[in-house]
Design a protein around this nucleic acid. Structure first.
Lengths: 185, 185
DNA sequence: CGCACCATGTAATGCGTTACATGATTTT
DNA sequence: AAAATCATGTAACGCATTACATGGTGCG
C-alpha cells in the first residue's frame, strides 16, 4: 500500500525518495508512514514495474539526487486503486490494548502507571495535530494552487487524527478511573 | 507480538492452536488478530524457545490435537513484557484515510459512495461490539471464577472498540457533509 | 444436501524493521 | 562544537498473508 502513497505524492510533482519521506511524515504519518529504506526499496520496485521513471541529477559533496516521475501507467494504476471501493475494514493493532487485556498479573499500580504514561503521549500527539500539522498543508497549496480542493480531503484526514486522539484520551481517563475504583490491589 | 497474545491466553489454560484462534477472534480481534497458519507457526517458535510445551492427544477421524502449555520460562517472559512500559505509540495504518487523502481525481460522487459504504461497515461493527461480544467474556468468567478481576480489563478493551467505532462513525458523517458541501464536482 | 465446525500443518511471497555503510552542508 | 538536514542505498531478519493440502463430524 505504500506503493499508492508514493504514487499519490508523485502525482502532485516529481521528487526524490528523501522528499517523499518528508511528505509522508508531515501529512500522512498519522495513517501511513514508512522509513527511508523502505521507501527506496519500494521506489525501485515501482520503477521495475514502469509505474515511475527516475532521472539522476548530479550533485557535488553529497549523493546525486534521483528524482522520480510518475508514468501514465503509474497514474492509471493509482486511479484504479482509488476508484476501487474498500470492502472491509483494516484489522486494528494496538499494543497498549493487548497489554491491558492481559495485565492483571502485574498489579494495579503498574497498570495505572502505564495508562498515565500513555495519556501523556496521546495528549502530546493531539497538540501536535492542532498546532504543527495544519501549516504543512497550507504550504503545499501556496505552491500548487490547483491542489486547493485536494486540501479539503487533507483536512478531513487531519480531523480524523484529532478525533482519534480525543477519543483515546477520553477512554484512558475513563479506564484509569475504572481501574482505580474497581481493580483490587 | 502475537507471541504475547498466545502466551497470555495459555496463561489462563492449556489449549490448542485452533482454540487460541477462537479466543483471539472473540476477544482481542479488535486490537490483535492472527490467522490459524500464523498461530501454528508462532506456536512452533515458542516451543523451540521453551516458552511453551506441547502434548499430542490422539483422536480418531480427525487430526490429533496438540495441546500447548505455558512453561515457567514463558510465564516469566510474559510478565517481563507486561511490566515493561510502552514508550511510544503504535504507528497507525488506515487504508480508507490513505485513499481519501489522494481521492480528488476520482471525483465527488465516487468519494461519497465509498464513504457511505464505510459508514455502513462501521455501524455493523459497532452493533457487533454491543450485542455479540459481551457474552464471550462472561462465559470465560463462568468457567474460571478466578478471572473475574481480569474481566474488568477485558471490558475496558471492549469499551475502546465501542468508542472507536462511534468516533469513526461521527467522523464519516462529518466528512460526508463536508465533501457534499465543499468539494466541487 | 450443504454448510459450519473441528483440526493440523507447509510453502511461497510480500511487507516492514533494524542495522549497516558513507559523508558534506547548514543551522544553532 | 554539536545537531539537524540533505542524500543514497544494501543486507539480514522477522512478521504476516495467501495458497496449498487433507478430511471426518454434526446440524439444519
Amino acid at each position: 500500500m505504500l506503493k499508492y502513497a508514493l504514487l499519490g505524492f508523485l502525482n502532485y510533482q516529481p521528487m526524490t525518495g528523501y522528499e517523499l519521506e518528508h511528505f509522508l511524515s508531515v501529512s500522512t504519518s498519522n495513517f501511513w508512514y514508512a522509513s527511508l529504506s523502505q521507501i527506496y526499496m519500494t521506489l525501485k520496485k515501482l520503477e521495475q514495474g514502469e509505474l515511475v521513471t527516475s532521472q539522476v541529477e548530479p550533485q557535488e559533496g553529497r549523493p546525486d539526487r534521483r528524482v522520480y516521475t510518475i508514468t501514465d501507467k503509474g497514474r492509471a494504476d493509482l486511479q484504479g486503486w482509488l476508484a476501487q471501493p474498500l470492502l472491509e475494514l483494516d484489522p486494528g493493532k494496538d499494543t497498549l490494548l493487548l497489554k491491558l487485556f492481559f495485565a492483571r498479573p502485574i498489579g494495579k499500580e503498574s497498570i495505572l502507571t502505564q495508562l498515565r504514561l500513555h495519556l501523556d503521549l496521546h495528549r502530546r500527539k493531539l497538540e501536535h495535530y492542532q498546532h504543527d500539522l495544519p501549516h504543512e498543508g497550507a504550504d503545499m497549496v501556496r505552491e500548487h494552487p490547483e491542489l486547493m480542493t485536494d486540501a479539503i480531503l487533507w483536512r478531513a484526514t487531519l480531523r480524523f487524527g484529532e478525533l482519534y486522539e480525543a477519543m483515546y484520551i477520553q477512554w484512558l481517563q475513563e479506564t484509569i478511573t475504572t481501574v482505580e475504583e474497581q481493580l483490587p490491589d
